[in-house]
Design a protein around this nucleic acid. Structure first.
Lengths: 217, 217
DNA sequence: TCGGGCATCAACCGAAGGGTTGATGCCGGG
DNA sequence: CCCGGCATCAACCCTTCGGTTGATGCCCGA
């Protein structure tokens, strides 16, 4: 066979964005040993990721979700994918809460991986993402299925937002000011949340939502 | 001077324990480029860390705190440091809650670092630990100072018990039944908790205590 | 021994949260 | 096109929570 194959004529160009130096080094080490990959750069902030993704020729961005600083990975993802001819964004995070996953997917992420993924899975996901196909970790896929199956558990975006603030310890009055709502609306959201979660108080709602991974910490 | 120094006659032998393959690769990459270090092995579980630390000649163990599996990093740390001639254990984790830090130090950890530490800091901490000296990240040191300075932050056993139930979503009435108390007593405990944490509601108390690592999630 | 922290309880009051009803506007799927 | 879910708000009522005052008993350390 005159196979024209095995030629990585154009390797997959990667941009790594993670605020942990150790993780960046680890991703580099894992991915550079893999054939067909080329790490163009690695950056410690979401802002730099957005900037470099626009300036450089990159196929896939590996993006952390929580950065120490202000900009969130999901915002950066949205900023990157908004442009025409944008690279694919593969979200790579430690957590698998519903809120994070949905935010990332809505922001235009092509895939969602957990950092405890083995190297092969990681490499496979990158190739899948580079091909423009969706790459979800098994855990994530399961969680999404779960969410589909029981729409009762699925809080709306606004409800999640309110509940997150409740979990942060804010009063209804404080939440209403923060979100530019009336207290009546906040209470209304809470009543819906309670019925969806099968609870009857703000504290138990936080406990239930935390257990289900609907909100952060 | 006939200095007998600068000779890395015996490099510092390291054992890496972390359930994230990417992090293990990253630590390897970061530490092996550093002169005077030798990574003996890296393992994905706390159990293997304990076993290898006993079998091999190791100077410093870099230990994660949260493993996917059952055994905790703090338990593994205790098991390793309990033996005579044991290697030093340097805890390396993502989180910096009081509970984690204290558990690690009580377990006999020589140092406590956060994973977002830059490589130089990491290397310096390993050398410090190898020399038998305590190596705490600045953030951690600050937090400990804080705890010492304001013993008010330390909740009593009973108060912690009550607050944990609050975090689980129980009402005062439910808590009083669970603990065989009157509601008055529960409220009394809560008032003390609020003043110690500097908050003014049950939900914000839970948020504050969770942030400080005083209760489990 | 005496003060002080911890744990326990009572009674009280105002405020915040919880629950209901009802209403409006928007949007998307059947 | 109309129904239903989402998001918004108002008015009302009742319960729980939050905060205070005050009191008892225990135990520990100065």
């Amino acid at each position: 066979m005159t196979s024209p194959v095995t030629s990585p004529a154009t390797p997959i160009r990667l941009l790594l964005a993670d605020d942990h130096p150790v993780v960046r080094a680890g991703l580099r080490a894992v991915l550079e040993t893999e054939p067909g990959f080329e790490v163009v750069a690695d950056v410690p902030t979401a802002e730099e990721a957005v900037e470099l993704a626009g300036r450089c020729e990159v196929d896939v961005v590996l993006m952390d979700l929580q950065f120490g600083g202000r900009m969130l990975g999901s915002q950066a993802t949205a900023a990157i994918t908004a442009r025409a001819g944008a690279p694919r964004v593969l979200v790579l995070t430690t957590y698998d809460t519903d809120a994070d996953i949905l935010a990332a997917i809505e922001a235009g992420a092509t895939g969602y991986l957990l950092k405890d993924a083995p190297p092969e899975e990681l490499a496979a996901a990158v190739r899948t993402a580079a091909a423009g196909k969706s790459a979800l970790a098994p855990t994530i896929a399961l969680r999404l299925m779960d969410r589909m199956r029981t729409p009762a558990t699925a809080l709306s975006r606004r409800e999640t937002e309110v509940l997150q603030l409740v979990a942060d310890g804010l009063s209804n009055a404080a939440i209403s000011k923060r979100l530019f709502l009336s207290q009546a609306t906040v209470k209304s959201h809470l009543v819906h949340i309670y019925s969806k979660l099968g609870v009857d108080s703000r504290t138990s709602a936080v406990a239930a939502a935390t257990a289900k991974g609907l909100i952060r910490r």
